[in-house]
C-alpha cells in the first residue's frame, strides 16, 4: 500500500491573508520532505491544511493510496501531544491508536515495550500531567513506532527532545522512509535524516 500526495499551487493563510507563495510539490512513498521557513512562515498552517483541518485560500492538494483518492492511514503529530493529563501514557496512546484503522490491534504490552525503549518505563502508568515536556513529547512520538501509518505529517517532532531522543527519532524516521512511508516534517533543530526534498516557504 503506497500513498502519494500531489500539491498544486497551494496557498494557505488565515482570514484571507496568504502566508506564502503558491506551492507545488509531490510526496511519494519513501520520501522525507522537510518544510523550511522561519517562524510564522506558515509551516504549521501548511501541515494542518494538508491534514484536512484547514481550507486553503487557493490551489489544491490530492491524497491517493494505490491510485485511489483517499487520506486513509495518515499520521499527524503536532505541537500539542493529544495526551489527556488525567490519563496515563498507555491509556492515551491506546486511545489514539484505536483511531487508525490499520493499527487498532496494538495491545498494551507493545505500548509499554515501546515506551520502555524511549526511556519512559517508570512513567508509563502515571497520569500525563506528572510528565515533563520532553517525556510528553516522547510519549506522543511513540506513535511513530506503534502506528503503521503510510504517511506522516510531523510538526516540529524534535521540540523539547534531548540529544539522545533526537538521534532515536532520526533513526526511526529513516527506517520508516526506507520501509516505504512518506514523511513531511518541519523542524528547527537539525535532524540527521537524508531529506529527499526541502520545501522553502517564502512569501
Amino acid at each position: 500500500m503506497t500513498s502519494r500526495l500531489e500539491i498544486d499551487a497551494l496557498v494557505c493563510g488565515h482570514a484571507e491573508r496568504a502566508l506564502f507563495a503558491p506551492l507545488t510539490a509531490t510526496l511519494a512513498a519513501g520520501d522525507i520532505v522537510r518544510v523550511a521557513g522561519d517562524n510564522g512562515a506558515g509551516k504549521t498552517t501548511l501541515l494542518r491544511t494538508l491534514a484536512g483541518l484547514l481550507t486553503p485560500l487557493s490551489g489544491t492538494f490530492r491524497w491517493s493510496t494505490d491510485g485511489r483518492a483517499s487520506r486513509a492511514g495518515l499520521g499527524f503529530i503536532d505541537h500539542d501531544n493529544a495526551l489527556s493529563p488525567v490519563l496515563t501514557p498507555v491509556e492515551n496512546l491506546s486511545a489514539v491508536l484505536r483511531l487508525h484503522r490499520n493499527t487498532s490491534g496494538v495491545d498494551e504490552f507493545q505500548i509499554v515495550h515501546t515506551l520502555a525503549a524511549l526511556g519512559l518505563k517508570r512513567v508509563a502508568h502515571k497520569p500525563c500531567r506528572a510528565l515533563s515536556a520532553g517525556q510528553k513529547r516522547r510519549t506522543a512520538l511513540a506513535r511513530l513506532w506503534l502506528a503503521s501509518c503510510r504517511v506522516w505529517l510531523l510538526d516540529e517532532p524534535a521540540a523539547a527532545l534531548d540529544q539522545a531522543s533526537r538521534e532515536r527519532l532520526a533513526r526511526q524516521m529513516q527506517i520508516m522512509a526506507d520501509d516505504g512511508a512518506a514523511i513531511l516534517y518541519s523542524t528547527h533543530q537539525a535532524l540527521n535524516v537524508t531529506d529527499t526534498q526541502v520545501i522553502e516557504l517564502s512569501r
Partner: peptide, 21 residues
C-alpha cells in the same frame, strides 16, 4: 478539554467517521 490537548485534531483526521466518535 480534548480541543486543548490536541485530541480533537486526532479525531478529525482519524480514518473512522467523525460522527461515530
Amino acid at each position: 478539554a480534548d480541543h486543548e490537548y490536541g485530541m480533537l485534531t486526532q479525531y478529525l483526521i482519524a480514518d473512522e467517521p467523525l460522527a461515530i466518535i
